[in-house]
Nucleic acid binder design. Sequence first.
RNA 1: GGUGGGGUACCGAAGCGGCCAAACGGAGCAGACUGUAAAUCUGCCGGCGAAUGCCUACGGAGGUUCGAAUCCUCCCCCCACCA
Length: 421
Amino acid sequence: MFLPVDEQLGRIRDGVAEIVPESELAAKLERSRVERKPLIVKQGFDPTRPDLHIGHAVSIHKLRTFQELGHRVVFVIGDFTALVGDPSGQSDARPMLTTAEIESNLQTYREQVFRILDPGLTEIRQNSEWLAGLRLEDILRLTSQYTVARMLERDDFADRYADEKPISLVEFLYPMMQAYDSVALEADIELGGTDQKFNLLLGRTLQERSGQEPQVCVLLPLLRGTDGERKMSKSYDNYVGLTMEPTDMFGRTMSIPDSLLAEWVQLASGASGVERSEWIGKADEDPLAVKRWLAETITARYHGSEAGAEARVAFDRVHRRRDVPEELETCVLSAGDEGTLWIGHVLARSGLARSTSEARRLIDQGGVKIDGEVVQDPECHVSPGSYVMQRGKRRFLRLVVEAAGGPENCPSTTDGDTGSG
RNA sequence: GGUGGGGUACCGAAGCGGCCAAACGGAGCAGACUGUAAAUCUGCCGGCGAAUGCCUACGGAGGUUCGAAUCCUCCCCCCACCA
């Protein structure tokens, strides 16, 4: 049932930033093998944002590895901790979420993780199960085991403190709660990004003080986002979402700076070690080829190889040949009383511009095309009919203008990324 | 509780009675260039069918003034030091 410890270690180590401490991991694996008892491997995710991205996927794939090795994976949804918000790496206090928001995010999480994890082998728990019932007395006992000074050692807190930014008391509780998850689950191993190190280590401390064997912390490198600077995060809009359409996945990946290639091939491609180093080796001489392979590989990883190839073709069409994409979202607008629609309103109401003022600016700058023709006159009107609208290089829309009074229907009025990122 | 320093647009940060829709930097957007990107250069970067116009906006509410982001009063919030 269980592979030899060395083999397991090899697979676990692959792509991992740090294992603390590795010797304990080997011991746990050894014992589990002898006793034929799977290890409990946990990772928590706060349902603060409804989308998981390929940055999260780095560690979720590692969880998958543990599943394949026969261990028991517990995916903790931090529905209770999300009330507080993880201060890790945060420069500001986070707003508290309402239970309703958490509830709806939680549902989408379940779907998304099973794109990677084996549903039959995954236990999903919500930490409200054990956290919500704690009494103040329990909390006092818990908090008495750690000191303010040690909390303040954390970089994020220390920086905020130095910057004269607020730190709420409840944020001190966050790591305690996450650590308590490990106690409640009697976790053997906890996975997390390197920014989670403090929280995971606190889990060890708390477990020990509760008379448990401390968990091993498996820290995974953080994937930087498409901007090449900050860690991938939905709030920076520099992410590739697990549920994104193939064209968007492909496009977003293509938009990463070359300097990020090695990192992404390493962490996000899912290719074998040999293949990875092969492509990384080529990154300097032919970054474009590597990036195209990477974009297709990532897309294929979540949508299948056919979709990956299609996304590549669609990308070439729009970006290399500057052509119109094959599939366009359609936006139906109705003309005004005079039977036509002013271009400013077309852009604003279709979501291509945020306001008529922005629409004017875009036109002034030559950033708007109708059926491939640059719109010169900011006062022009559009007659009823069907057009291809283009804003900038890569936002397209099929525009249908109907006679006055008809129903309007635009799919992405807010801020649609039509072609790709 | 006391004393002092703060709260300005997406973020950081200037302004401290009219020349302020608010310098500057970053982010973002558009154009040029390109390998898609980055870098670079140019322009834009509150809203209104555009306008030496109106509306909204410098933590909140009032007030002084012909005129307030700027002065006054009260309130809210953040930070530091001392308790």
